[in-house]
């Protein structure tokens, strides 16, 4: 059967052709193509890994951010409470300070009034005594000659007045 007997010429040329084909591809094509295929596979692997890492980091960051927000809220609430307390405290203090001051002013005013009253009483008494002496002098001058008797009378009168008061 001619189909099953290999022809030498064809074997020879097939061998030559394959050798040429293999040499050309091995020298020029395969290194570039296979390097490209390999490095692209590496690139894809790296990309996937990077994406996974990024996702992990993003998840972490989100959690952290939530924690920060919660912390900030808590701090805010604390500060509000503090401020409230300080406010009432300040008002309270101001009020008590004002009261103390007012008390002081009133006390000093009272003392002054009492002093002035005393002074006025003293002046009044002096004047009254002067007037009385003047009046009595005039009256007594007319009625009594004896000065000693007159003074005695006047003093007794004055004592009388004083004890009445």
């Amino acid at each position: 059967m001619e189909l099953f007997t290999p022809d030498f010429g064809l074997i020879f040329w097939m061998f030559v052709a394959f050798a040429v084909l293999f040499f050309v591809l091995w020298k020029f094509a395969w290194p570039v193509i296979l390097k490209n295929v390999d490095s692209r596979a590496d690139l894809i692997d790296k990309g996937v890994e990077y994406a996974q890492n990024a996702k992990l980091q993003l998840d972490n960051a989100r959690q952290q951010a939530e924690e920060y927000v919660a912390e900030a809220r808590r701090q805010q609430a604390d500060m509000m409470r503090d401020a409230d307390r300080i406010k009432t405290q300040i008002i309270e203090e101001a009020r008590s300070a004002a009261q103390v001051e007012a008390q002081k002013v009133m006390d000093s005013a009272k003392v002054q009034i009492q002093q002035q009253q005393k002074e006025a009483e003293k002046q009044f008494r002096n004047q009254v005594s002067e007037f009385a002496l003047d009046i009595a002098e005039k009256v007594v001058k007319n009625q009594m000659a004896d000065k000693q008797a007159q003074t005695k009378l006047v003093n007794s009168l004055l004592d009388e007045i004083e004890s009445k008061n």
């Binding site: 030498f8 097939m14 084909l21 020029f28 094509a29």
Partner: peptide, 22 residues
């Protein structure tokens, strides 16, 4: 006999096509 027969010629064409493609 190492003639360039029809099949040999076909092999050369195939070689050129593969080289061209690559």
């Amino acid at each position: 006999d190492i003639s360039i027969t029809k099949n040999v010629c076909g092999i050369f064409i195939a070689v050129m096509i593969v080289i061209g493609l690559m």
